[in-house]
Design a binder for these strands. Structure first.
Lengths: 341, 341
DNA sequence: ATCAGCAACTAAATCGATTTAGATATTTTA
DNA sequence: TAAAATATCTAAATCGATTTAGTTGCTGAT
């Protein structure tokens, strides 16, 4: 019932063929030599009958739905929410709609959702994948659904990916901590350690300390048990081979969980423990102490991802080079990592 | 190219009609007396040829797309991001996909987006509307696209709406502040003051102070100029008829902007100024001082909205009673509103 | 032997657009 | 004046499913 007025109704209403109406509405009047008067009659009828084209019928015929699937681990995570917003704006400006899906870092769920999106004939996919190899997703891309990875890549020469400079950002944080006098870092990573973003942040970070011959510890917390795991980890710092003097939270959720635990334990930041985080949050700059963080280039990532996806979507089978695009990050130094006294 | 294998291919591959294949795949084999062997051959062929049904074609025929439009002012706002996530889970569990659109509180944009969603033949809409009257949206609902309002209503006997108990929540905050000894509240509202949620929060709040014969001030800040407006307002408190001893931020963004300004001005909370907020954020409980806030029943709102929408979607033209459903909120008392000393 | 009834399947219409391949007048050209 | 060119418009096929209205060939009852 959603649209009872069809092209045929318009056509009959003014006594022409639906072909003509279709041509006029698609701006091909000139090309097909349709007279100005006839065009005007079409437009008038469209307005009078309040005609709205049925996108489903159009999609069936053209094979294009004007829809893009955006697959992330959790849309309620501020990082992905901001990313989704930026992407939505780009998509809308270009006539696309966005279907957003959350995978909870569950590979099976990710595959189910992507299959569902393909069945819905999305024109393209932007995926922050939880998978550990590219095989399945490459089949999707090769199978006719253009796919661009965002935030996480799956290795060189697999799939086009747009990511932040995770390794560099990790190193920036490590160097900053070192310069501020910190020597014993504890890295709080995630159980999803196969994921490129997390892995590279940690690698970039530890390489710095390793290079200086300093000790470091890396521990993992579960994606679905983040809060208790972090709490447990911080309550048992004595179990570590050394007493850490600073923490590196590999993403915003880890940092928030750490802040919660530390507040409950009344640990002073940065006096007792310095803290830095990969991924900046609005509240990091307004709390005391403000949190030092690496800010990701969300807008730029979306622009680039959309641009690359569009090339794939219009390109007839000819695939672009499957490159990994790393965009520069920014270090926001704040009080949580001030010089150790 | 997205799906080259069609029902016809399956049918030809095993030498039956596509009718049969369709019936089998839709679980109507029993009903149409199709033999078990034939069914098995269909399933085998589906697997062998890796058939995925074309949802667009199905939608055209059945008139159902299995898609719901979720329209909010800004998906990057944590409140809507959380709401979207809850709603997505419900939708997915019931076979629906969600297209999310952000309106930026722009009525024209909202109407453009909703029209676009209708053209895409969404089965239903969930809208947090920026409009000030129900007329346009009622036409959508009556025109065949079931619509449920969420977070904001548009008056009794207009459109089904699921909202938080905004007035009650506002009053809870006011009573709490009064009990803590605060007497001179400044309400920081939004330029979008025609919106039911904001309006009712403020009404509920000021009624309490009015009832006690106490003064209060209500000022508005712009949705798109939030940060500077709040900063400007707080820098010029002397322009108010009285010196406020506490602030009521009507939503999470206002509170965040206020916290930013107050931090920059080095104003002590709650000593110099108490602060409460409608809508809780994860970080409110981990900062010092923690922020007293009213927590909205996001999960319950989504469940109820989805439930009501589903009734409308399956109901053949028979519309449910257009009621406004208010769900209870929870007051989380924290340090930012501790007793004035 | 005939026919009702059943089991197992199919042809064709349909959804609402786009698009291909013309059709019909009218005007221009040789 | 006939043929060619042009201007304006249309019939029908098509996309890939669902669904309606049958068809075909048996079996068993009478």
């Amino acid at each position: 019932m959603a649209s009872r007025v069809t092209l045929d109704h318009i056509a009959q209403h003014i006594g022409v063929s639906k072909t003509l109406v279709s041509l006029v509405l698609n701006g091909k009047a000139q090309q097909y030599g349709i007279s100005r008067q006839t065009c005007d009659r079409v437009f008038a009828a469209v307005k009078e009958l309040n005609y709205r084209p049925n996108q489903t019928a159009r999609s069936l015929r053209t094979g294009k739905t004007g829809t893009i699937g955006l697959v992330v681990s959790d849309i309620s995570n501020t990082f992905y929410a901001q990313l989704a917003r930026q992407f939505e704006d780009l998509a809308t400006a270009n006539g696309y709609s966005v279907i957003i899906c959350s995978t909870d870092e569950d590979v099976e769920k990710e595959q189910r959702l992507i299959t569902m999106l393909r069945n819905r004939q999305v024109d393209g996919l932007v995926v922050s994948s939880s998978q550990s190899n590219a095989e399945w997703l490459m089949a999707v891309n090769d199978g006719g659904t253009p796919l661009v990875l965002i935030d996480r890549h799956l290795g060189a020469n697999t799939l086009t990916a747009v990511v932040a400079a995770n390794r560099v950002g990790g190193a920036m944080l490590a160097n900053h901590l070192f310069e501020q006098g910190y020597r014993y870092p504890l890295v709080i990573g995630l159980s999803t350690n196969h994921i490129s973003s997390v892995a590279e942040r940690i690698e970039g970070f530890v390489e710095v300390f390793k290079g200086k011959g300093l000790p470091y510890a890396v521990r993992e917390v579960g994606f679905n048990t983040l809060r208790p795991d972090v709490e447990n980890l911080l309550a048992n710092l004595k179990l570590l081979p050394f007493k850490p003097d600073c923490l590196f939270a590999v993403n915003n959720n880890v940092a928030t969980a750490a802040l919660q635990s530390l507040a409950a334990m009344r640990v002073k930041i940065p006096n007792t423990l310095g803290l830095v985080c990969f991924d900046d949050l609005p509240y990091f700059s307004i709390i005391d102490p403000a949190i030092t963080a690496v800010e990701q280039p969300i807008a730029a990532m979306c622009s680039k991802a959309f641009e690359l996806l569009q090339i794939k979507m219009v390109g007839q089978g000819v695939d672009v080079r499957q490159e990994i695009l790393e965009l520069p990050v920014k270090l926001n130094v704040r009080k949580s990592s001030f010089k150790k006294s």
